[in-house]
Simulated scan of single mutants.
Amino acid sequence: MNIFNRFIVTALLVLFTSKAFATSPIITKIERINVNTILVTFDQGIKPVSHFDVPIEGEFSVKLYTSTTYYLGSSNSLIVRTPTAVNPNDNGFATQWQWEEPTLTATDNDGLSEITINLNAYHSDFENDIGHSSLDYINTLNLIWQHDLSITSINTLDTNEGTNLEHTLIASDTAATFSIIENTSGLFSLSGTNNATLSFDGTNTDYESTTKSYTVKIKATGNDANENTEQTLTVNIKDIIDTAPVIRRFTISQGVNQGRLIIKTDTSVT
C-alpha cells in the first residue's frame, strides 16, 4: 500500500472513530438570569445548521407547565423560541444560548418559585461540530433569580416595654418601595415616602408577659416589580422597673438601752 493510500485509510479510520464515539450535545443547565431571560447551557458547542436545503431557523421548541396548568405551550404542543448565542467562537458554535421569555411575568404574578420546562432543540437543527443533534430536556426550572437589590438597614431592634418605636428602612436601591408581607402580631405598620418608615405599636407590650419579641417580614420592590427581596425584622422588648420603690422612715428614740441605740421603724410609705 503506497503512502497516499495509507493516508486515505488513516483519515477514514479517524473520521469513523470520531463519529462512532462522539456524543450528542446535552443540556446541563437551564436557568433564569433576570426578569425575563432564560439561559441554556450545553456540555459542548452547538450552532444552527440547515438540512436538505431547508433554511437555518435556529429555534428551540419549549413549553412551561406546572401540574396541569400550562403557561407556555400545551400538553401536546410546544412553542417556538429563537435563542441567541452567548460568546460564540469564530465558527458560530456556543455552549450557552438565551432568549427573552415574556411568559415569566405570568409565573411571577402567580407566585411560582419553580416550573417544569420541556425544551426540544432537535427539530430546530442545532448540532455540534460533527453533526450530532441535541437531545430533549425535561426538568425543573428555578424561577428565583439573583439580583443586586437588598435591604441594608438593621433587622434587630430593642425597645422598652410599653413603648412605641419607629425605624427607617433602607434598601440598596433608593427608589425601592417597602411592603409588609407577614405581620402576625398586627403591631407593625408602614408610612412615609416609599413606605420606608416602619412603626411598632408597643403600647400594650409587657416584658413580664410570655412574648418578649415580635417579628415582621418586610419586602422591598425595585423599579422592576420582579426585582424584590425580603427581610425579617425582630423587635426585642426590654424590661423596665415598673414597681415604685418602698421608702421606710426611721426614728431614733431618746436614750440608750443597755448601751445600745434604739431605732424604731414607722409605717412604710411610698
Rank of each mutant, 00 (worst) to 15 (best):
V54W: 11
V54A: 15
V54K: 15
V54I: 11
P55K: 04
P55L: 10
P55R: 01
P55S: 03
P55Y: 02
I56G: 10
I56K: 15
I56T: 12
I56Y: 05
I56M: 13
E57D: 15
E57Q: 14
E57C: 04
E57L: 09
G58I: 01
G58K: 07
G58Q: 03
G58C: 09
G58E: 05
F60R: 01
F60P: 01
F60E: 00
F60K: 01
S61V: 00
S61R: 07
V62A: 02
V62M: 07
V62S: 02
V62Y: 00
Y65A: 07
Y65N: 01
Y65M: 02
T66Y: 14
T66F: 12
S67K: 10
S67E: 08
T68F: 08
T68Y: 11
T68C: 08
T68V: 10
T69P: 00
T69L: 09
T69R: 14
T69Y: 09
Y70G: 03
Y70F: 12
Y70D: 07
Y70S: 00
Y70R: 00
Y70W: 12
Y71Q: 12
Y71R: 10
Y71A: 05
L72Q: 03
L72G: 00
G73E: 03
G73Q: 08
G73H: 05
G73M: 06
S74Y: 14
S74P: 11
S75M: 09
S75E: 12
N76F: 15
S77C: 08
S77F: 04
S77Y: 01
S77K: 02
S77P: 12
S77V: 02
L78W: 03
I79V: 10
I79D: 00
I79N: 03
V80Y: 03
V80P: 06
V80N: 07
R81W: 08
R81F: 07
R81T: 03
T82Y: 14
T82C: 05
P83N: 09
P83K: 05
P83M: 01
P83Y: 10
T84K: 09
T84N: 08
T84R: 07
A85C: 07
A85F: 12
A85R: 08
A85D: 01
V86W: 13
V86H: 05
V86Q: 14
V86S: 13
V86K: 06
N87G: 00
N87S: 13
N87Y: 13
N87I: 06
N87K: 14
N87P: 13
P88D: 04
P88K: 00
P88Q: 06
N89Y: 09
N89V: 01
N89H: 02
D90M: 10
D90W: 06
D90S: 15
D90L: 14
D90C: 13
D90I: 13
D90Y: 11
D90E: 12
N91L: 14
G92V: 07
G92A: 13
G92Q: 10
G92F: 15
F93E: 04
A94S: 13
A94N: 11
T95R: 08
Q96T: 11
Q96K: 12
Q96P: 07
W97N: 11
W97M: 04
W97A: 01
